[in-house]
């Protein structure tokens, strides 16, 4: 029996149906792969700082109430910190869940549905979070409880 000859990979003689698609999707997957690593490294710093300040310092988690959040967001430093954390964590998490959906949802319709729900949730959460950080009033009119101490000057 004659031994079948098999062309070496990438020899240019591989059946066209096995070669990788050129163009089309562009470099999106490669950009997503790189984004996961870059955002991941930044998120380690942002989230460890977030957890340390909110859970370890002072009275820890018991200190968290409206006044605590208002006190932090009175400073642009924490506004930017939390904004960066929101956007990077949501995009990092969305891309992660997108990968998992692509891996496990085998039917085209299931995959499309799950990813649509995912993307809607992502947009809603990012827009909501961003609006809250920038339209937030630490001393709302009529409020009396749990205000940060600097509100009493009003």
């Amino acid at each position: 029996m004659a031994t079948p000859t098999i062309d070496a990979p990438r020899s240019g003689k591989v059946d066209v149906k096995y070669t990788r698609r050129k163009g089309g999707k562009g470099n999106f997957e490669m950009a997503a792969w790189l984004f996961m690593r870059l955002s991941g490294v930044v998120l380690v710093v942002l989230i460890f700082g977030h957890l340390f300040v909110n859970l370890m310092v002072g009275d820890g988690i018991h200190a968290i109430d409206f006044g605590f959040v208002a006190g932090k967001w009175a400073s642009p430093f924490w506004q930017i910190w939390d904004l960066l954390m929101l956007w990077l964590a949501m995009l990092h998490g969305t891309n992660g869940v997108r990968t998992i959906i692509n891996d496990y949802a085998e039917r085209n319709a299931t995959r499309m549905t799950l990813k649509t729900v995912l993307y809607v949730a992502t947009v809603v959460i990012i827009v909501l979070g961003t609006l809250v950080i920038f339209t937030f009033d630490p001393c709302p009119a009529g409020a009396v409880t749990d205000l940060p101490s600097f509100c009493t000057a009003k």
Binding site: F66, A70, L86, I125, P140, A143, T145, D146
Partner: peptide, 19 residues
């Protein structure tokens, strides 16, 4: 994270709701 952003957004509703 989804729940965390939603509950923190209550600061925009009222101090009472958040606390």
């Amino acid at each position: 994270l989804l729940v965390h952003v939603l509950d923190t957004s209550l600061v925009r509703v009222s101090p009472e709701a958040y606390t």
